[in-house]
Design a protein around this nucleic acid. Structure first.
Length: 301
DNA sequence: CGTTTTTGACCAGCGC
DNA sequence: GCGCTGGTCAAAAACG
């Protein structure tokens, strides 16, 4: 499988003492950006890989001009160790912000049908954002969660539309955007926004949530899947083995921080249904790509 | 029949 | 202030 680009570039980008700032090709500010080169293997296949894929998580430095409100996700993941019960009453982070807004929608939309009650602060960042570059033919990758498409927009300077998805879980306000790279239509950029506050709705084949081997980050042996959106407050165990040592970190990132980040994340397997089309839609072909762009001159103090 | 997708319209932020 | 663009809504259509 062709490497779209240049993992070599990444060090130079994410280096620089944290002054770098990552955007998706469309200019999104991200908390974290992951580059994967799985060499065409599926997620499931990757589990069996003795040799870890090239995986790199990049933690962009907080920037004043960015839309992001959260920062330092790696070091301070927006984890809420509270039980899942909070999902119904007090969704964590800004998710509740969204929920409140959305709950108002019902009545507001009745009030003024002509004047749509758009959210006032829709531009505000609702949580950490993570982008994945995935080389796949399907736009919507099956990541185990259920998503509902709520919009599609043509993107400037791109022949490919951007799709907007929202987690179907009632109390979960996680969103994701899916778009294709103009430079390489085979590459899908998936940007997750927010944090799941609920368990993954699907159960992996052959693995039970509580009984699945969970090596944790300090564990050994296997592959690791970093799907940052798979983070919820319930103390469930990830369905996949997590192993730090399966990751190859760029030396400019901080493995410890990343590990910590991973520790706070819980991954979720592709859905059962996804196994039906493993060859087409799983996060299987994450590739590195040429990141851009002008690094903002925000100096980390 | 319930759920999801499509799609045009609306709104807010931002730059000029 | 105006126009552009991204993000979201919501009705209708499509789907299972």
């Amino acid at each position: 499988m062709a490497n779209l680009a240049s993992l070599d570039q990444i060090p130079s980008v994410c280096g620089g003492g944290g002054g770098g700032f990552f955007d998706t090709p469309q200019g999104y500010g991200l908390d974290m950006l992951a580059f994967h080169d799985y060499g065409g293997a599926s997620l499931f296949d990757m589990l069996q890989q003795p040799t870890p894929p090239q995986t790199l998580m990049v933690k962009p430095a907080p920037q004043a001009s960015t839309m992001l409100e959260t920062s330092e996700v790696v070091n301070t993941p927006p984890t809420n160790s509270s039980s899942l019960s909070s999902s119904s009453n007090e969704p964590v982070n800004d998710v509740d912000q969204e929920n409140n807004t959305r709950s108002d929608d019902a009545q507001e939309k009745n009030a003024n049908k002509q004047l749509k009650p758009k959210k006032k602060n829709q531009k505000k960042q609702k949580g950490p954002r993570f982008a994945f570059m995935t080389k796949t033919e399907v736009d919507h990758l099956d990541d185990g969660f259920r998503w509902r498409k709520y919009g599609q927009k043509a993107v400037k300077n791109s022949p490919f539309p951007r799709s907007y998805y929202r987690c179907t879980s009632a109390s979960c306000g996680v969103k994701k955007r899916v778009e294709r790279l103009t430079e390489d239509p085979a590459v899908v950029v998936t940007t997750y926004e927010g944090i799941h506050i609920h368990p993954c709705p699907v159960t992996p084949r052959g693995m039970l949530p509580e009984t699945a081997t969970y090596g944790g980050l300090g564990g050994g042996g296997g592959s690791s899947y970093i799907l940052p959106q798979f983070h919820y407050q319930q103390p469930l165990r990830p369905f996949f083995h997590n192993q730090t040592n399966s990751l190859s970190f760029n030396n400019t990132t901080t493995p410890s921080s990343y590990s910590h980040y991973l520790q706070e994340r819980q991954s979720c397997p592709p859905s059962m249904s996804s196994s039906l089309h493993r060859d087409q839609g799983l996060l299987q072909d994450m590739v590195s790509f040429q990141i851009r762009k002008e690094e903002p001159k925000v100096e980390p103090s």
